[in-house]
Simulated assay, not measured.
Amino acid sequence: MHSNSSSDEISERITHEAAHWCIRVHEADFTPKERARFEQWLESDPAHRLEFEAMQDIWTTSEAIAVSPVGTTGNTCARPIRQRRQGAFRHYAKAAAFVLLALPIAALVGWKQGWVPNDFQRYSTTTASSEVTLGDGSTVIMNTNTRLTYLNYIDHRSVVLSEGEAFFKVSHDATHPFVVSAGNGDVTVTGTQFNVWKYSEQVVVTLTEGSVIVNSDSRSKARAVRLVPGMQASYSASTRRPETRTVDTRQVIAWQEGKLIIDDLTLDQALPMINRYLDSPVVLGDKYVGDLRLGGIYNTSDIAGLVQALPRVLPVQLARNKEGNTVVRYKRSYSPLEIR
């Protein structure tokens, strides 16, 4: 009896700690010293990381719930409240949103008003890709290390891509738009096929069929661009408007066949593509090595082998930094001027 009580206390303590860190990492005043303490807490116990990831999923989901539904405007009565400390407000707003989901009558009212979803699904992958079918019949092929959440509202379908990469085949419904939120922006469609890759704060959207609207800022429609098949749009937190270009979509979605195609890219461009398949990212050791170019077709199951082979195809050497990351540097026998 005492053992069960002790176990419950430990579990409750971890939950409280995870909730605390989940709130703090999203605050603007989160300091580097706090970040170091958070990382230490995260690594000290596998249960800490599992609980924190669960909290992150709750945070992501409640962000989607808290957003005003498509075609509606926010409650003007809430504006004075928003002028208070944002972190505390978001915390209690999220708690209130989940209470609504737990109460059948309130949930029914919330569904009819477009405030809360009637369907909520959460998916994640680690070392292998996976195909899932959403509640609306749309299918999603998820690359490795990907997390997403699906919510179905009365007037729109919402997917939050927290991290990773996914290829969407959206079930057509002109009256029920499908919105993928990634980073600061979103992708809106009624029925089409497209790929979304989120890496750090960078988001890349590639359209293979149909039409999509890509917005680099979910709060402003003025930053949106429309794509046609064969086009790609990219944006980040600092992008005013998505940057677009024409691409070979077969190369972009080759990951579905277990292939990574690098088409004569600089190492600076290629490393984000490589790092999505590694447990810890490869980093550049100096400002010159990022300009070296790399090409080829590689198996996504052996990207670690690609990294180890870099010294055989480029004038570089590999080392480890104190964080355990692989660092790519020029070989000492070369100088930047000789190579450039």
Results as ranks from 00 to 15, higher is better:
residue 206 T to L: 02
residue 133 T to V: 11
residue 280 S to D: 07
residue 115 W to C: 01
residue 274 I to V: 15
residue 310 L to D: 08
residue 301 S to D: 12
residue 312 R to F: 09
residue 2 H to I: 08
residue 207 L to G: 11
residue 211 S to E: 15
residue 218 S to P: 00
residue 80 P to T: 07
residue 44 S to T: 05
residue 282 V to Q: 03
residue 306 L to C: 05
residue 275 N to A: 11
residue 121 Q to Y: 01
residue 26 H to R: 03
residue 29 D to Y: 07
residue 152 N to W: 02
residue 83 Q to W: 10
residue 232 Q to W: 00
residue 338 E to S: 14
residue 203 V to T: 14
residue 160 V to R: 07
residue 295 G to V: 06
residue 7 S to F: 12
residue 268 D to L: 13
residue 102 A to Q: 15
residue 303 I to L: 09
residue 222 A to I: 00
residue 301 S to H: 05
residue 234 S to W: 08
residue 289 V to G: 10
residue 74 G to D: 13
residue 207 L to V: 12
residue 278 L to I: 07
residue 44 S to A: 15
residue 23 I to R: 05
residue 128 A to H: 05
residue 298 Y to S: 04
residue 55 M to V: 02
residue 145 N to Q: 14
residue 179 V to Y: 01
residue 113 Q to I: 01
residue 297 I to N: 06
residue 105 I to Y: 11
residue 47 A to T: 07
residue 339 I to S: 08
residue 320 R to W: 05
residue 117 P to K: 05
residue 29 D to M: 01
residue 133 T to N: 06
residue 1 M to D: 06
residue 19 A to T: 13
residue 68 S to L: 04
residue 166 A to W: 03
residue 70 V to D: 10
residue 100 L to G: 08
residue 261 I to D: 03
residue 97 A to D: 10
residue 2 H to N: 12
residue 97 A to G: 03
residue 19 A to W: 00
residue 253 I to P: 01
residue 199 Y to C: 01
residue 273 M to S: 12
residue 17 E to I: 04
residue 282 V to S: 10
residue 186 D to E: 14
residue 143 N to T: 03
residue 262 I to E: 09
residue 62 S to R: 04
residue 213 I to D: 06
residue 220 S to G: 06
residue 78 A to K: 09
residue 228 V to G: 03
residue 79 R to Y: 04
residue 102 A to W: 05
residue 62 S to A: 15
residue 152 N to A: 14
residue 64 A to T: 08
residue 250 R to H: 13
residue 113 Q to S: 12
residue 330 Y to V: 02
residue 230 G to D: 04
residue 295 G to T: 07
residue 6 S to R: 04
residue 206 T to Y: 04
residue 251 Q to Y: 06
residue 213 I to C: 04
residue 52 F to E: 05
residue 131 E to L: 09
residue 111 W to T: 11
residue 95 A to W: 03
residue 39 E to N: 15
residue 321 N to M: 13
residue 85 R to P: 00
residue 289 V to K: 07
residue 269 Q to H: 13
residue 169 K to F: 04
residue 205 V to T: 15
residue 12 E to V: 08
residue 54 A to Q: 13
residue 22 C to K: 01
residue 7 S to C: 04
residue 303 I to A: 06
residue 148 L to M: 13
residue 291 D to L: 03
residue 45 D to I: 06
residue 258 G to T: 11
residue 256 Q to Y: 00
residue 216 S to P: 08
residue 284 L to P: 12
residue 20 H to P: 00
residue 173 D to F: 01
residue 165 E to Q: 14
residue 313 V to D: 05
residue 56 Q to P: 00
residue 229 P to R: 10
residue 150 Y to A: 15
residue 181 S to K: 03
residue 186 D to W: 07
residue 270 A to W: 08
residue 137 G to H: 04
residue 166 A to Q: 08
residue 58 I to Q: 09
residue 173 D to C: 02
residue 76 T to C: 00
